[in-house]
Design a protein around this nucleic acid. Structure first.
Lengths: 141, 141
DNA sequence: GCATTATGATTGAATATGTCAATGATCGTG
DNA sequence: CACGATCATTGACATATTCAATCATAATGC
């Protein structure tokens, strides 16, 4: 099977690598009550970006209505807070609470450990190369 | 937003690059009545691998029951045929029909064009590098 | 100022995907 | 040939995705 032409297809490789990474990520985050989706939201709510839900949807390539559910869940669990944007009160800015930060940092350890394990085959130089290449694909233009 | 720590997270980059690639792929394949899933099945049914449905499920990281639906659809449209494996009659070997081959080759042109467009930012040397790195992630061990 | 148009969040409905356990056919082994 | 294992299939269930409609707020043009 691995001799198939598909194996040289970037989009197929991307899909398969992503499937593995997603499964490993979700498994590693489960003990922290997160999944890669909610982990990503939390990550963005951590730094001083102060993203609106619209921003989150665009960045994570989700439908805005999916972000509603994601933020609802995190908010119910006290990890995140919706704040009205003073500059534009249509926007809900999503910010991590103190517990959210704590949860994130411990989850991040687990996530990183899982990544290291999953990517044990490649050197850290290769990892950086890969990250750079993926960035140009992930953020064209 | 792009300054977020997530941007340096391989699994996030993988997810986002894959989302873009998937959307572009599905769009490009739509005019051929395919999606990237069915395109992949067709690709594997093309060469002389003679994959069983189980093989397809494992390779494409799908549940075997999802492959049933995928192959049902392709078979209904005459692009693919189920053959009993003479060596083990539990296996359904999936093979492309003549129309399936025709459909695939024209779809492949569209898929490749879409990829080139999507990956216009990177050189072909970088593309090869990326493919190689992704292969080690996509097929560990 | 006020009507018009556009944008963000939210909801609910429709559709699609994913997961799982049960079943019948076939295989391999003792 | 009985046993347990594997493959394809089905149906039930849970989860995700997409979409249109709604309400609140903003920005624009008059």
């Amino acid at each position: 099977m691995r001799g198939s032409g598909l194996t040289r297809d970037l989009s197929f490789l991307l899909a398969r690598a992503n499937a593995l990474s997603l499964a490993a990520g979700n498994a590693a985050l489960a003990e922290h009550g997160l999944r890669v989706r909610s982990y990503s939201v939390l990550a963005l709510a951590m730094d001083d970006i102060r993203p609106s839900q619209r921003d989150l949807a665009a960045f994570l390539r989700l439908n805005p209505s999916q972000v509603v559910a994601l933020v609802d869940d995190l908010e119910d669990r006290g990890l995140v807070r919706r704040e009205a944007d003073p500059a534009d009160r249509r926007n809900n800015v999503v910010v991590a609470t103190a517990e959210g930060r704590d949860c994130f940092v411990s989850a991040q350890l687990a996530a990183r450990a899982a990544e290291r394990e999953l990517h044990g085959q490649i050197s850290s130089r290769q990892r950086d190369q890969l990250a750079e290449l993926l960035q140009t694909l992930a953020f064209p233009g």
